[in-house]
Amino acid sequence: MRRGRELGIALLGRKKLADVRQILWLDVTITIPVRPGQILHLEHLTSDVPSFKLIVGLEDKVRFRSVRLHSGDAPVTVNSLTATDVDIKTSNFPIKGVLTAKKSAKLVTENSPIEVDITTNGGEFHDPSMIVLDTANNHLDAVVRLESFEPRGLNVQATTSNGPMNVTIPYAAWGSHLSYKGSTSNADATIELPSTFAGTINLEGSKFSSLVSGYTDDPTGRGYKSKMKSPRLNLYQVWYKSEEELDLSRVELRTQNGAAQGLILGADSSWRPQKDRALP
């Protein structure tokens, strides 16, 4: 039902066809015109079309408050997309691409990989940006970029099974609150953290766990101290300056029948925010 000044496109057809030759094949292209040199702000983009391959490429000329792209038994590819909240879901096919989500991004599939590069502005410490990545029976590779020069809050949750997991957070301003939970099984799992990370790292692997860092002393240069202990296969490390900072950031990475590894990136990590963008 159309409300107010909303515009939409409806694709209607029979749910069940007796003969596969009766299937209607459609190629739908939606073009959003934008004046040269301007950025178009729109409220919502919603697509719920099972068995449709979705390809999105809007550069940074169109910004949405929310984007919901749902398919099934078909791939979703995002060449470029900018929104406050992003919700992408399919099944039995991969989700791949590059996108910017100011507040939240939820990407869900199964039996297929997730391969994404996500940029977010982060949120307040009590209301952080939320990134959820969920698949099964395949690998998960993600880069989550915190684009802010000010301390921000970021919460990342990544889940798969029967496939390796690699997640990288290349940059966070000093004092940012980072929370990460990752889990897989029957494969190795890796988390790469920025040199500014200060908090707790808990790695649990049924084969082995390891933390690799180029730092032997305080990586912050601000008088932080380090505690480390390795009970059995778990590895636990804390960087802190005062007892109140013990829970500043927290990482939990688990895998069964695989190795869990954490890597603290060097201070010369190549990626940095270009600017703080005011998204819709």
Rank of each mutant, 00 (worst) to 15 (best):
R3G: 05
G4N: 14
G8W: 14
L11I: 15
R14Y: 11
R14H: 11
V28A: 04
I30V: 15
I30S: 05
Q38A: 10
L40K: 15
H41F: 12
D48V: 08
S51V: 05
L54F: 13
L54N: 13
V56R: 00
L58Y: 05
R65Y: 14
R65D: 15
S66G: 13
V67A: 00
A74M: 05
T84Q: 12
T84V: 10
D85N: 15
L99Q: 02
S104F: 04
S112K: 04
E115Y: 07
T119D: 02
E124Q: 13
H126I: 09
A136R: 10
N137L: 01
H139W: 13
G153L: 13
L154D: 09
T159H: 12
N162R: 12
P164C: 00
P164D: 01
V167M: 04
I169T: 12
H177N: 10
K181P: 12
S183V: 15
A189W: 02
G199Y: 13
S213C: 06
D217E: 10
D218W: 05
Y224A: 01
S230E: 06
R232M: 10
L233K: 15
Q237D: 02
E243G: 02
E245K: 02
L246E: 03
G258N: 09
I264Q: 07
W271L: 06
P273K: 04
P280E: 00
